[in-house]
């Protein structure tokens, strides 16, 4: 019983580690990659350390596993917060084409929150039900009086 539980925990931990890596490779920008790695990665480490505690039932092993898991849970949000702040300031500085506009109170001057590469821009805006931004010098392709009732994503 002990072995089966530990094996299941190890397998799910390995799957979550793979999911975290898949997110790091496939997702379009820094903040979404961070979202994948912080949560799924921490869960992978936690599951495997729990498997150690299940497999080696001694007080000292359990205490060490608990300490490592607590440490992971304490530090993952801190590290993610610092990386997120750094990339937020970096995106503001680069002034790329706006993907999503800032809606933070007191900072609504149209600052760029996220930098999304060109090829993902349309899809992200569609999935968030946003109209594409009006860029200076470019006319909207749909005339004003023929605006469709249905949103463009349907």
């Amino acid at each position: 019983m002990n072995e089966i539980l530990a094996g299941l925990l190890i397998l799910s931990g390995g799957v979550f580690a793979l999911v975290a890596t898949l997110g790091i490779i496939r997702l379009p920008d820094v903040l979404t990659r961070m979202h994948a790695s912080t949560k799924a990665g921490t869960l992978a480490g936690t599951l495997i350390l729990t498997a150690v505690a299940v497999r080696l039932p001694e007080i000292s092993v359990t205490a060490k596993c608990l300490a490592a898991v607590l440490f992971l849970f304490l530090t993952a949000p801190l590290a993610a917060h610092m990386i997120g702040r750094a990339s937020y300031r970096d995106a503001k500085q680069r002034q790329e084409k706006p993907a999503l506009l800032d809606s933070v109170e007191g900072d609504n001057s149209g600052d760029i929150v996220r930098h999304i590469p060109e090829k993902h821009l349309k899809q992200t805006q569609r999935s968030l039900h946003l109209e594409p931004p009006e860029l200076s010098g470019e006319k909207s392709s749909t005339p004003e009086n023929e605006k469709p009732d249905k949103p463009p994503y349907e």
Partner: peptide
């Protein structure tokens, strides 16, 4: 971000 993920994976 990738380095952070690798660290947690090495713990695992």
């Amino acid at each position: 971000v990738a380095l952070d993920m690798i660290t947690v994976t090495i713990v695992a």
